[in-house]
Amino acid sequence: MTRAGRPWSVGVLGGGAWGLALATAASRAGSPTLLFSRRSSDASQSRFAWTHEFAELAAAKLILVAVPSHLARAVLRELGDHLDGSHVLVHGVRGLVGSELATISQVVREETPVRRCGALGGPVQADELADGSPSAMVVASEFAEVTNAVRARLECEHLTVYETSDLRGVEWASALVGCLSIGVGYAQARRNVSAGMLAALISRAVDEAVSIALAAGATEARTFYGLAGYGDLLASMALPNRPEIVLGRALARGETLELAREQTKLRVEAIELVPRVTAFAKARGLRCDVFEALTAILDGTLEPASIVRSLFAH
């Protein structure tokens, strides 16, 4: 219950930039919102309420999950003690978990009693969402009930929420775009990569990503060509401060991975993901030259100059 006695219509799990942005957007759309964070809050400054208790968060039936992927399993397990089948969990987590590359919705099923889950994706950035500047995102769920609820509680004049049933497709698209963004940053920083070459590299990379996503259970290629894939990747190209881009650029300058990591400030989940996705693709006989090149870039085992050559060798 809210302090005014009304039920919370949206709960947000995670007090990072993304969680705060989602809570702000939900409040702006008129949904009474409660945010769970372990950090101390400045509730007087925000449009929404704060809590440190999972039990309180569970009073909201729709919960948006915004925690880093490496913490998701532990946090969801704890939250799971307070949930039942009537809860709806929708995550905005970019990443795949463990060596088996589980999506967060799979983790939700493993760690909580919740069956109705979904994922957010697309090019919208945390600051745009928080500022209320016009933007678009996508919500995916196999349950129409879930996508409807998210649209009803998040959409407002400045935010359009598109929907799809291809949950797995959106989750993989978000994770793979994170990986490809490192490559974009890398290529952007290399002087010998022309705009045309960059475009060719990206098209090639997207083609690989699509077949990987389909092999992982995405239901349609279109998902990747939409907001959650291409849309998100185009945003990366225009965002010099996006952590993956910063990392890629640093690596292109010949810096070590350690040094490059320090410059990103935020954790880059794609660093661990790239070699795992490459192994996943190889095990299924899928072409993955771009992902192999990314693995080599992160390992520092490939000379920058030879990368483009290796990608377009006949």
Binding site: D84, G85, S86, H87, V88, E110, E111, R115, E145
Partner: peptide, 29 residues
């Protein structure tokens, strides 16, 4: 559930408003 927690079964057919209802799309999924 997968973690061995007992779950109130009717909760799966309750909507976000807490009301039990028949929903062909949900049940199909």
């Amino acid at each position: 559930d997968a973690h061995g927690r007992a779950v109130r079964t009717p909760s799966y057919v309750e909507g976000l408003d807490g009301k039990v209802r028949i929903d062909a799309a949900r049940d199909g999924q």
